[in-house]
Design a protein around this nucleic acid. Structure first.
Length: 496
RNA sequence: GGCCCCUUCGUCUAAUCGGUGAGGACACCAGCCUUUCAAGCUGGCAGCAGGGGUUCGAAUCCCCUAGGGGUCACCA
C-alpha cells in the first residue's frame, strides 16, 4: 500500500499567478507569471489565475481587464481562473469570503487567533516608541491577554477590531525554497500579524495561504519580496492543518538606478510596451533571460524551446536590473526575422492609429506589406515602422534640414537632378535593377560619382538622407510620384 | 534599526564534484561590406566587491567587512 503511494502517485503540478488588480501588469509581475507558466508547461500541470482582490479600496475592474488582456497578449494562458472556469473556484478572493471567515473562526475557537481592539493611533504610537528605543517595530500582543469578559465588553462598545494570529514565541521555522535552499527564521522576530481586517476582509497572508491550500497549489512561485512573509504563512498553514507547498522565490527586477521598479522609471507596464510597438515574442524572450538561462549561449529562444528546457533550479538568485536596450535589440531582431506577413499584420494597427497616413494609404495603390519589407530592416519597433514609412504615403513630407544644406547646395546639383529626372522618365520597366543601371550610366555620362546623383535624389524623393535602398524606394513609388517629387523639389529649392 | 536574501565585464548572464587564457549576448569602439542608413560579418574594450582562511590549487568551500535589495501595513 504504502509503496504504491510512494512510487506511482506522481503528484500533478499546480501553480498560480495571483495578481491584485490595483495597478497595471508590469515587467516584474509578468516575469513572475512567465516563470510560473514556463514551469507548469514544462511539467505538464495546471496554471491557475487567481485574482487577489482583498484590497477593496485600491482594486478596480479596469486594472483587472488590463491585466487579463496583457496576459492574453503575451500568450500566457491559464487552465483555471477568470474566463476559464475550474473546479476550485471561485477564483476571485472577494468571492471567497465565507471560506476565510470559516477558517478564521476555526483559529479563533482553538485559541490560535484572537480579537485585537487596538486603534491605528495606538499602534502608531507603540511603533514610534519602539523606533525611538531602537527596537524593531512589532505589535506588543497587548490584546492577547484580554479576558473573555473584557473582549465582549469591547465588542459591545462598538469599536472596530481585527483578528490576529497568535504566533509561537519560541523556536524557528525553516522555509525550503527551490531557488534559495533552506532559510531559517527565528520566531522571536515574528509578531502577531493581522489575518482579518476590521472590515471583515482577510489580509494577503491569510487569504493566500487558505487559497493555495484549497486550490491544491503544489508550487508557489513568486517574487522574492514575499520570502520574509513565508514563515508567517507556513506557521498559519500548520495551525490550520494544511500541507505546505513548495516555494520558489524568484529574484526581483530592479530599475536601472537599483531601486524598486515603479511608474517613474518609464515604461514598466506591459501595455506601454505594446503601445510602443514591442512584440510579445521579444518581451517574452527578454524576460525569459532576465534571471534564467538555458545553460548554453543561446540568446534567441522560441517559446517552445524555453518550455522544453525551463527549470526552477536554473533561476538565478540575484536581482536583475532591467535595461531596455537588449529588449529593443531583440525586438529589432524579431522584426527582421519573422515572416513578412506576420510583421505586417502586427504593424497594421500602428498604421491605422495614424489617421493621416491611413487615409493616404487607402487612396494609394501601395501595399503596406511592400513598404514594411523595405523599412523593417532598419527599425526597432512597430511604431518606428510607421515613422519610417511616412514618405511612401504622404507627398508633403518635410526635407531634412542638414541634408538640404549638404546635398542641394552645390552649383550643379540642380542640373544633375534635372538630368536624373529626365533619365528616370525614360526608364522602362521602372524596376530596381533597371533603375540602378540607368542611374549608374548617367553618372558615367556626367562624369560624377554615383553619390552625387543618389544622395540628392534620395532627398528629393524621401526628404531624408537615410533609409532603404534608393532604387527599391523609387521602384515602389512608381514613375508618376517620383517625377512629381522632382517637380516639387525643383520649385522649392532650385527656382531661379 | 532587527531579520532575511544577494554580490562574475556598464547591463543580462555561463563556468558539471574546487584545476578555464573566466565564455556568450546587449551596449560601446574599429574594420569589412556598401548608393545613404541600417542589417550582416570580423576584431577590440571591459568583470570574479574587499580582506582573511581551508587547499598542491578557490570565481567556486568557510569566516569577516562593505555594498545592494527585500521585509517588519487593517498593500499584495
Amino acid at each position: 500500500m504504502e509503496q504504491k503511494m510512494r512510487c506511482c502517485r506522481m503528484e500533478e503540478v499546480r501553480v498560480r499567478f495571483a495578481p491584485s488588480p490595483t495597478g497595471e501588469l508590469h515587467v516584474g509581475g509578468v516575469r513572475t507569471a512567465l516563470f510560473n507558466w514556463l514551469f507548469v508547461r514544462n511539467r505538464g500541470g495546471e496554471m491557475i489565475l487567481r485574482i487577489d482582490d482583498t484590497d477593496k479600496q485600491r482594486s478596480s475592474p479596469e486594472y483587472l481587464d488590463s491585466i487579463i488582456s496583457s496576459m492574453q497578449w503575451l500568450g500566457l494562458d491559464w487552465d483555471e481562473g477568470p474566463g476559464a472556469g475550474g473546479k476550485y473556484g471561485p477564483y476571485f478572493q472577494s468571492e471567497r469570503l465565507e471560506i476565510y471567515q470559516g477558517e478564521a473562526q476555526r483559529l479563533l475557537e482553538k485559541g490560535q487567533a484572537y480579537y485585537c481592539f487596538c486603534t491605528a493611533e495606538e499602534l502608531q504610537a507603540e511603533k514610534e516608541k519602539q523606533r525611538q528605543m531602537k527596537q524593531p517595530p512589532r505589535y506588543s500582543g497587548r490584546c492577547r491577554e484580554l479576558t473573555p469578559a473584557e473582549r465582549e465588553q469591547k465588542k459591545a462598545a462598538g469599536g472596530s477590531y481585527v483578528v490576529r494570529l497568535l504566533m509561537p514565541k519560541e523556536g524557528e521555522t525553516v522555509v525550503r525554497d527551490i531557488i534559495r535552499g533552506e532559510v531559517t527564521f527565528d520566531h522571536a522576530n515574528l509578531d502577531d500579524f493581522i489575518i482579518v481586517r476590521s472590515d471583515g476582509l482577510p489580509t494577503y497572508n491569510f487569504a493566500s495561504v487558505v487559497d493555495d491550500y484549497k486550490m491544491k497549489i503544489t508550487h508557489v512561485i513568486r517574487a522574492e519580496e514575499h520570502l520574509s512573509n513565508t514563515p508567517r504563512q507556513q506557521i498559519l498553514a500548520q495551525l490550520l492543518g494544511y500541507s505546505i507547498p513548495q516555494y520558489a522565490h524568484v529574484p526581483m527586477i530592479l530599475a536601472p538606478d537599483h531601486s524598486k521598479l515603479s511608474k517613474r522609471h518609464g515604461a514598466t507596464a506591459v501595455q506601454e510596451y505594446k503601445e510602443m510597438g514591442i512584440l510579445p515574442e521579444a518581451l517574452i524572450n527578454y524576460l525569459t533571460l532576465l534571471g534564467w538561462s538555458p545553460g548554453d549561449d543561446q540568446e534567441i529562444l522560441t517559446r517552445e524551446e524555453t518550455v522544453r528546457s525551463f527549470s526552477l533550479e536554473r533561476v538565478s538568485k540575484n536581482p536583475a536590473i532591467y535595461d531596455l536596450t537588449k529588449l529593443i535589440w531583440l525586438n529589432g531582431h524579431y522584426l527582421r526575422t519573422m515572416e513578412l506577413q506576420t510583421v505586417t499584420e502586427r504593424a497594421l494597427p500602428f498604421f491605422q492609429k495614424n489617421e493621416e497616413i491611413w487615409a493616404a494609404y487607402q487612396k494609394s495603390l501601395l501595399k503596406i506589406e511592400d513598404v514594411v519589407a523595405l523599412v523593417r530592416d532598419r527599425v526597432k519597433t512597430l511604431q518606428e515602422i510607421v515613422e519610417a514609412s511616412v514618405y511612401f504615403f504622404l507627398e508633403d513630407f518635410p526635407y531634412d534640414e542638414k541634408g538640404v544644406k549638404k546635398h542641394f547646395s552645390r552649383e550643379n546639383t540642380g542640373a544633375i537632378l534635372n538630368e536624373t529626372a529626365k533619365t528616370l522618365e525614360k526608364v522602362e520597366p521602372f524596376k530596381t535593377e533597371k533603375l540602378k543601371e540607368e542611374l549608374q550610366s548617367l553618372g558615367r555620362k556626367l562624369e560624377v560619382s554615383l553619390g552625387k546623383i543618389n544622395l540628392p535624389t534620395r532627398l528629393v524623393v524621401t526628404g531624408r538622407t537615410m533609409g532603404p535602398d534608393l532604387f527599391d524606394i523609387i521602384s515602389l513609388l512608381g514613375k508618376e510620384k517620383v517625377l512629381a517629387r522632382f517637380q516639387r523639389a525643383r520649385e522649392l529649392f532650385f527656382q531661379e
